[in-house]
Design a protein around this nucleic acid. Structure first.
Lengths: 247, 247
DNA sequence: CAATTTCTTTGATTTGCGTCAATTCTGCGT
DNA sequence: ACGCAGAATTGACGCAAATCAAAGAAATTG
């Protein structure tokens, strides 16, 4: 299931649009592990690089005991919880280079489940087992605190804007966030993979499926974007900025 | 400005509804600091207990460099950011026993400002200065990771419900969250202090002031709550649960 | 490849909530 | 106690988005 650890350059990368290690959110942690005690190596199985995942596969399910944090090498994922009727609610998306499950470590349980939206691959770090090896975890902890803090700060922003924006603003901001995340990772900012369904987007943005459809069509009519099968082409970044910013 | 450190029991508590240390979110940290090296004491000024705050006073402003984390001993606070027009947006409330500013540590800057809604008091821990004393921070870091993780998990819940709930559900859930927070801290679950204005509630919940007013009146008409000057009496907890849960 | 299901789009209708407006209430300073 | 300013309440109205509905497109299955 979990592959043994190997240096990234030793693997021949036949994957599509795979993110390189130094663009990856997990890298600070990996570096700590690999370089803190150079040459000593990491015990087998604690850090698994490029574990492949199938479309629809769950990395972990909600409320499952915490085991590992993941970094997305390629592909994309959605985080889901469930309402009292059992219906799925999308609470986040993870793209290349994103970290998954960091906050699960805190409570020793995952507060949401994560499902692959397409085939892809992840790196997988079993933090707790690492701690048990007796290696120093001080730097590792520092990196985690930073990441969690950024997550909290970002969540505040996302929440406080989502809640008071209308449908156009939500979708515009959503597309722009995808553009920015692509930019940070060095991927194309013009052609965005849209691996999630309209329902997933609607669920995440708190809108009805139909509204998402309508607004995207409107964006296309206004030459802001061009809709493709499972991607969108961004035609007018400034126009998107304009519709996204509330006044 | 900042009082020197003293044992909690040594202070004569003449404050109204002040939370005791072992009900406080900061306590795990305080314990680490106080007990990790018993008898050694904490350098003066790094942990300040029961610093009083005036109504309207800012604990810190947005984007200010991180200095300390705070625990609410008594009183209540609101976290605010600003939209592009400069209008205030309430992004959270802090009540007795809550921790303030934890995630500011991560980025070394506060992502929101915090204003006192009434007179009160806080404990104030200058974490960075503590680290510079050379004392072991490993346990402290562990406690922080736990807190940040819980914050992230809770934020996910809050966001994902706020965004798809209607006005009644948002306000019902808001009141229930106040009840639960009171319960955890051992305060009254029937009489809730409502130190924030309707506008603050509206801003936090993403509603119009008028809507908050209308819904609260409706709740009162339906005998779910009784509105007081600056507090509400919870009459029907089950009823509130009912209106709060979406189906 | 047809058959079935799932996803997406578009239209018609309804409704919850924001906006505007007017009135009443509350707290504060003189 | 008075008057003033901000806060809260209540009503009327319009619009954005949910809901209902149906048809077309794409994906999955045997």
């Amino acid at each position: 299931m979990i592959q043994s650890c190997c240096k990234p350059d030793q693997t021949n990368s036949n994957f599509f649009q795979e993110i390189v290690c130094n663009e990856c959110s997990l890298d600070p942690l990996c570096q700590v592990i690999e370089y803190a005690e150079p040459g000593s190596g990491v015990p087998d199985g604690i850090l698994a690089r490029r574990r492949p995942v199938q479309r629809g596969e769950m990395l972990f399910v909600m409320n499952q005991p915490f085991q590992a944090i993941y970094a997305v090498k390629s592909g994309s994922f959605k985080a889901v919880t469930y309402d009292q009727t059992g219906a799925e609610r999308v609470v986040g998306f993870f793209l290349s280079g994103d970290l998954i499950g960091v906050e699960g470590m805190a409570n020793q349980t995952y507060s949401y489940g994560v499902r692959a939206l397409e085939v892809g691959s992840v790196c997988c770090l079993e933090v707790d087992r690492l701690a048990h090896t007796g290696r120093s975890t001080e730097v590792l902890q520092g990196a985690l605190i930073t990441m969690l803090g950024q997550e909290v700060a970002m969540n505040h922003l996302v929440t406080s804007s989502l809640i008071r924006q209308n449908a156009e603003q939500r979708l515009g901001a959503f597309i722009l966030s995808l553009v920015r995340r692509s930019a940070v990772r060095g991927l194309s900012q013009r052609n965005l993979g849209l691996s999630m369904s309209r329902s997933d987007m609607a669920s995440y943005l708190g809108l009805a499926r139909e509204t998402v459809s309508r607004v995207l069509s409107r964006f296309q009519n206004n030459e802001l974007i061009r809709l493709r099968k499972h991607s969108i082409e961004v035609l007018d970044l400034d126009g998107l900025e304009r519709v996204s910013s509330s006044d």
